[in-house]
Amino acid sequence: MSSDDESFDLAACLERVRARDQIAARELVEHLHPLVSRIVRTRLPRRVAEEDIAQDIFLKMFTRLEQYQGNVPFTHWVSRIAVTTCIDHLRAQQRRPEFRWADLSENEADVLDNVLTNENDVDAGEALASRELVEKLLSQIKPDDRMVLQMLDLEQKSLAEISQLTGWNTTLIKVRAFRARRKLRKLFEELKRKERQ
């Protein structure tokens, strides 16, 4: 059973959950877990305890269920809880003090070298290394800015979609994207100076 499963009667399930039916609550968690786990995996570093965060998201969902008015699809409402929980988690994490060449794998260092020293596109075979490198670079910027850049540049979401998921207005999103790109530009300049020391 997944959030795309059309045979699942979400409205009836929600009614039963509101009546404190534990079996319905279990079914709802099973139905939404693929959606929630995808959001957590996409937006948080791989090392985090994914199951704990998913549990946190579901508990928030049940606590706030009375506030759900049905103005937006239920999956959008849960997605928003999931995204804001991921942001809270990123805020709670200690940021790494410094980004160093020495922390990169051989492939990641090659990719970084490539993007710093020439104008060519990165080889398609290096996609995974690029993804890992992006994650390490993003860990250097503020959680809110990081989330905006991730959704804009990696997931290619529109400003309206990001606004819906985070609750931030479009001006704030643009400011955060600008700030994040400026920070990354500085980071790239710094890395270029220290190249593979």
Binding site: E30, P34, S37, R41, E51, Q55, N120, A127, S130, L133
Partner: peptide, 26 residues
């Protein structure tokens, strides 16, 4: 250029709830 390359990596997929997870959360 880095983001363009990273987008080519397979997207994270969702997974079914681990055994006992839904019961515990409910």
């Amino acid at each position: 250029r880095l983001a363009t390359s990273a987008r080519l990596a397979p997207a994270a997929a969702g997974s079914p709830a681990p055994f006992g997870f839904a019961t515990r959360v409910a």
